[in-house]
């Protein structure tokens, strides 16, 4: 029987093109045995949610460095709700001030990683969030 895999959608919403962090994370997640669908830069919230649903991912990981996180995160959470897909875990990373981080976590973003976070920490958190039902 084939093993179940944690499937993760990684994407950059908005117009910010700084993709070093998210690409490094993509590789690290793959090397930890996950299946990573990388959408690249310049995605609308609609594209991200539609892809998450079609790919049946467990996690959506967003990276925003342009400061537009307070628009994009809530919009994606809202769209997931509209599509009855709130069970998909949303996490994110980038330059996000503490105050905004707290607000976003209250809205339902499950984890926000700042600069300097190790990829192992991210992997650990994802496994924790998805549970150990998958490897």
């Amino acid at each position: 029987m084939m093993a179940e895999k944690i499937r993760v959608l990684l994407a950059k919403p908005g117009l910010d093109g700084h993709d070093r962090g998210i690409k490094v994370v993509a590789r690290a997640l793959r090397d930890s045995g996950m299946e990573v669908i990388y959408l690249g830069i310049r995605n609308t919230p609609e594209q991200i949610v539609e892809t998450a649903i079609q790919e049946d991912v467990d996690v959506i990981g967003l990276s925003i460095l342009s400061g537009s996180h307070m628009y994009h995160f809530p919009r994606i959470l809202q769209l997931l709700k509209e599509r009855k897909a709130e069970d998909i875990v949303v996490i994110g990373g980038g330059i996000i001030p503490q105050e905004d981080k707290e607000k976003l976590e209250k809205m339902g973003v499950k984890a926000i990683f700042g600069p300097g976070t190790s990829t192992q920490e991210i992997i650990k958190k994802i496994k924790e969030l998805i549970g150990n039902k998958k490897n």
Partner: peptide
């Protein structure tokens, strides 16, 4: 800002959340 850098007017759907930001 990013919409200007990518050739979008401020009312373009992709400019949402980015106008006047960076």
């Amino acid at each position: 800002d990013l919409p200007t850098q990518i050739g979008y007017d401020s009312d373009h759907p992709l400019a949402r959340g980015e106008v006047g930001r960076v």
